[in-house]
Amino acid sequence: MTTTESSTRAGADWAHWLDRWDRQQTAYLPLREARFEVMFQAVERLRGREVTILDLACGPASLSQRFLTRNPAARSIGVDMDPVLLELGRRNLGDQDGRLTLRRADLTDPGWTDLLAGERIDAVLTTTALHWLAADQLVRLYRQLADLLPEGAVFLDGDHMAYDVAEPTLQHLALMMKAEREQVFERDGDEDYAQWWTALEAYSERLDERERLPFAERRDVLRERRVDTRRAGIAMHITALRDAGFAEAGQIWGYFENRVIMGVR
């Protein structure tokens, strides 16, 4: 499927739904585009522009879309466990003339990296995703990435990462800022995460059965998913990366608990 065909398939306006996804994500994270920019600059300066990136827990491939647009010689492999978001990405973006591949993978499955056999990955990028993983799952993932990546490759994670318990004033200030953002969110009446999903499923149900998104499959996936609501702090991420075998690890950008960390293999 070409990019043009993906936007007109069966008359469904999938670009509209990707735009709505981006808008609701940005409502939660006003500095979302700045976070993308920092991550992309790090890859381009350290690994170049003719690179293959792994878009980890890619969702509908918003990150890949941006990176491939600004780097026409780059490739991206996106992996995610959500069949609806992956299909939305495929219908929106196609394969970008062979430069974009989207694959189903559960990052908590020890064998998920088998999907990447034979691929040389220059950089791994992920955003607003790994906070769903429990601490033991995160530690294993970082070890898998260290084994996967060649020397000099980079890992970049943009996500919510808490202050340490020994930093109560910083924690309190971050919570104050979060509460203020939520008040603005509610005041402006922006579409939230749950509303977007409800609206997308209703839209999908109105389509011909062959064109509907795989919501039943998604419900099966979510029933089996183990979710840990305790988010790993910044110190744990950095320590886990170093213990996994990354030569360097640290924060390169941040706004309170909205951070970008980088590991260098």
Rank of each mutant, 00 (worst) to 15 (best):
T4Q: 15
E5C: 01
T8G: 02
A10N: 12
G11A: 04
G11E: 09
W14C: 08
H16D: 15
W17K: 07
W17H: 10
L18R: 14
R23F: 04
A27S: 06
P30A: 00
L31F: 07
E33C: 00
V38H: 09
M39W: 05
F40C: 11
F40D: 11
A42H: 06
R45K: 01
R47E: 00
V51M: 11
A57R: 04
C58M: 00
C58W: 02
A61W: 01
F67W: 13
F67M: 09
L68T: 12
T69M: 14
T69I: 07
R70L: 13
N71P: 00
P72E: 15
A74W: 06
S76C: 06
G78I: 08
V79F: 01
V79R: 01
M81K: 03
D82C: 00
L86S: 03
L88V: 05
G89W: 13
R91I: 02
R91V: 01
R91E: 00
L93W: 13
G94I: 04
Q96P: 01
Q96D: 13
R99H: 04
R99Q: 04
A105Q: 02
A105E: 07
L107P: 14
L107H: 11
G111A: 14
G111V: 05
W112M: 12
W112E: 12
L116I: 02
L116R: 01
L116V: 05
L116T: 05
G118K: 11
R120M: 04
T127C: 15
A129I: 09
A134P: 00
L138D: 10
D147C: 08
L148R: 07
L148W: 13
P150H: 05
E151S: 13
Y163D: 13
Y163L: 10
Y163F: 15
V165Q: 10
V165H: 09
T169W: 09
A174R: 08
L175D: 15
M176R: 12
M176T: 14
M176E: 15
M177P: 00
A179Y: 07
E182W: 12
R187N: 07
D192T: 05
A194E: 13
A199H: 11
E201Q: 15
S204Y: 09
R212E: 03
L213T: 03
D220H: 02
V221Q: 02
L222Y: 08
R225Q: 13
V227M: 04
R230H: 02
R231W: 05
G233S: 01
M236C: 06
M236F: 15
L241W: 09
L241S: 06
R242C: 04
R242E: 12
D243N: 06
A244M: 01
G245Y: 01
E248Y: 10
W253A: 09
W253V: 04
G254P: 00
F256V: 05
N258I: 10
I261M: 02
M262K: 11
R265A: 07
